[in-house]
Amino acid sequence: MAQVIELPLSRADPGRCRALTASGRRCRNRAVGDTGFCRVHLPAAPERIGPFSAEAVREVLRSLARRMTGDYEVDRYGFDRELTERILLPLARPLMDRWFRIEWRGMENVPPEGGALLVANHAGTIPVDAVMMKFGVLDRHPARRHVRLLAADLAFRMPFIAPLARKSGNSPANADDAFRLLSEGELLGVFPEGYKGVGKSYRDRYRLQRFGRGGFIELALRAKVPVIPVSIVGSEEIYPKIGDIRILARLFDLPYFPVTPLFPWLGPLGAIPLPSKWIVEFGEPIHTEDQPDDAWQDAMLVFELTDRIRDVIQQSLYRNLMSRRSVLL
């Protein structure tokens, strides 16, 4: 078969085939299509399987085979990068883009590398907001960073949820893991309101609860990383909690047993979140790097910074609430 060598365009006669024949001379065929090659010298089109290129299909099969033989890496925390990027992200994407139609603001405030602490409000009865923030940064940030969340112990105790929480790179909320992750240069996400935030009643929506005891600020000061306030509008309406059945909560060892307009009346249908319109804004980083080494032991400074960040998030919540046309649009 003739060897196909492409000539530089400048020397090529636009009317003729761009290939060289086996003898080294220009192909003289003038019957060329849009490609610039005649039928004989048309480079082989990449093989296709259905709508996909054969190479992509082969790659998927190869990685499936690796997964089947356990030939993949997870980090010490149990973070499975491949699973998160290739399986979980595509599952989360329609929820982010179609169901909640999340509008991302200020993504450029998330640093492209190095340790940083994302501090966000928490709401919605089930912590969907944490999952959305995590996959939003992975999907929309130019550096495709993974947010490692600190989650409540409950997430690591529940069957099926527990392995997923680990594999997508999250840790139980404790200072040791948090500090280690930050000093290893990871992007850490925390929700200082905790259960008080996710589990608050619908009438308290968008009212920030107490920010724990300021432990997250101590962390940021100790690890010398910037704090990025994140405000999430929309998560309050997904499961409006209008009641709490205490006795069932105690029975199942849960922090609360929610009653929403759809749950538990509609059974599993009640688990469908209402399609509220979301706005997630990443605020300007608050820098802690220039504070002295022992600043984290300064209780007054910790309180002051905690309040400041809480205030920034609250203001941003009000602002974005105003800019939203309605709950659903």
Binding site: R76, Y77, G78, D153, L154, F156, R157, A162, S171, P172, N174, D176, D177, R180
Partner: peptide, 11 residues
């Protein structure tokens, strides 16, 4: 489930 992800000797 409350355990830190990594145990060091002094924990």
């Amino acid at each position: 489930p409350r355990d830190p992800s990594l145990f060091t000797e002094d924990m």
